[in-house]
């Protein structure tokens, strides 16, 4: 009986994943990212992308660390809103594509991503361009990882931009509440990954009126061509979920959300290296979103031990809106100004 049924959760996972992928397939006319690019390096699931820049584009290369929770192309979703397109005009621009991690990487720790993988990418960029330092921008959890990396390898980063990156999880809003009581041990005993569809559902869950408001907005604006272009591109991105590797998810919930080790300077990598905020030297821009419920402004503040030079700008938008909304252009301009000066 059990053998024939398999487990309920596995079935549900497979069916939902399949439906979401099919939806994504239907929206396949919307590409995953609009700026031309090439894969310059591969390591397992992870790829390093280099975006096309005008000939003669020089300067310190910029490495973008996207979130592990969703796909990277939210920063390159249409020509009109693309951060990456703007960056690539000014600097050699690279990005780590985390791919679609599955159960085969479920045993890898979070430090595999925030230290080992980022270091490999930086090493490749340095080898290819002959530089000894890169500029780095991290978005959401990607920002948290970029920050941890800048603590571990301070000599490799010149400028660091933290775009709505949660660092201090002591008051991380509604997600902290859920993380505190999340049955993490049961999760760890039963799953090798946090399924992408379940993550997507949890984001919808904490905004219960979100689907209604989205439908209302669609009804009001669907005749606008520019709105429809962005709307469809966003839908395509939403229906392209990514699973979070099991052990890394366990560490994200326990070490960061529950114990807040990063802000306290007590986080260590799987190899026992301390992630020490006091060791950081990179010139830093903290770019946060005033209406962010995923990474509220208070969570984006740097730890007290951090002595690196820091500027802070708050944009009046939400967590996703800061990349695609009407204020996204201001955020992008602030980032470029920071990098160029």
């Amino acid at each position: 009986m059990i053998g024939n049924m398999d487990t309920l959760v596995q079935h549900l996972d497979a069916i939902t994943e399949n439906i979401m992928r099919k939806t994504a397939g239907a929206l396949d006319t919307y590409p995953r990212g609009v700026t031309p690019r090439e894969v310059v390096y591969n390591a397992g699931n992870i790829s390093l992308l280099r975006f096309e820049s005008p000939e003669g584009t020089e300067g310190t290369p910029l490495l973008i660390i996207p979130s592990l929770i969703n796909r990277w192309y939210i920063m390159d979703i249409t020509e009109e809103t693309s951060y990456i397109k703007e960056f690539a005009q000014k600097r050699p621009t690279y990005l780590i594509d985390w791919g679609y991690p599955d159960e085969e990487v479920g045993h890898l720790p979070l430090s595999h991503y925030y230290h080992r993988s980022i270091k490999r990418a930086v090493r490749q960029i340095c080898r290819q361009t002959g530089v000894s330092q890169v500029d780095m921008m991290g978005y959401c959890i990607g920002g948290t990882m970029a920050y941890a990396f800048s603590c571990l390898e301070p000599e490799l980063i010149d400028h660091l931009i933290l775009l709505t990156a949660p660092l201090d999880f002591s008051e991380a809003g509604v997600f902290a509440k859920y993380a505190d009581s999340f049955p993490i041990e049961e999760f760890s005993a039963s799953m090798n990954k946090m399924p992408g569809w379940l993550l997507a559902l949890s984001f919808q869950f904490v905004q219960p009126m979100g689907p209604y408001q989205k439908t209302k907005m669609f009804h009001d604006k669907f005749e606008s061509e520019s709105f429809m272009k962005l709307y469809n591109a966003m839908e395509r991105w939403i229906s392209d979920p990514v699973s979070f590797p099991g052990k890394a998810y366990y560490e994200l919930i326990t070490d960061l959300y529950q114990k807040n080790l990063l802000a306290q300077g007590q986080l260590t990598t799987a190899d026992g290296l301390p992630v020490n905020p006091a060791a950081r030297r990179a010139k830093t821009l903290v770019l946060n979103a005033g209406k962010d419920y995923i990474a509220p402004v208070i969570t984006t503040l740097l730890p007290a031990a951090d002595q690196a030079p820091v500027s802070e700008i708050t944009i009046p938008s939400g967590h996703i809106g800061i990349t695609t909304g009407k204020n996204g252009k201001t955020a992008c301009k602030n980032t470029i100004d920071f990098l160029m000066n």
């Binding site: 059990i2 487990t7 959760v9 596995q10 859920y178 049955p183 005993a189 039963s190 799953m191």
Partner: peptide, 23 residues
């Protein structure tokens, strides 16, 4: 509500672990 949700998720995951082991 959050605590109730967590208990429900914990029960589902424990069930999943049990079925996986049996399988």
């Amino acid at each position: 509500f959050i605590s109730g949700m967590s208990k429900s998720i914990a029960a589902t995951m424990t069930g999943k672990a049990f079925y996986s082991k049996a399988l």
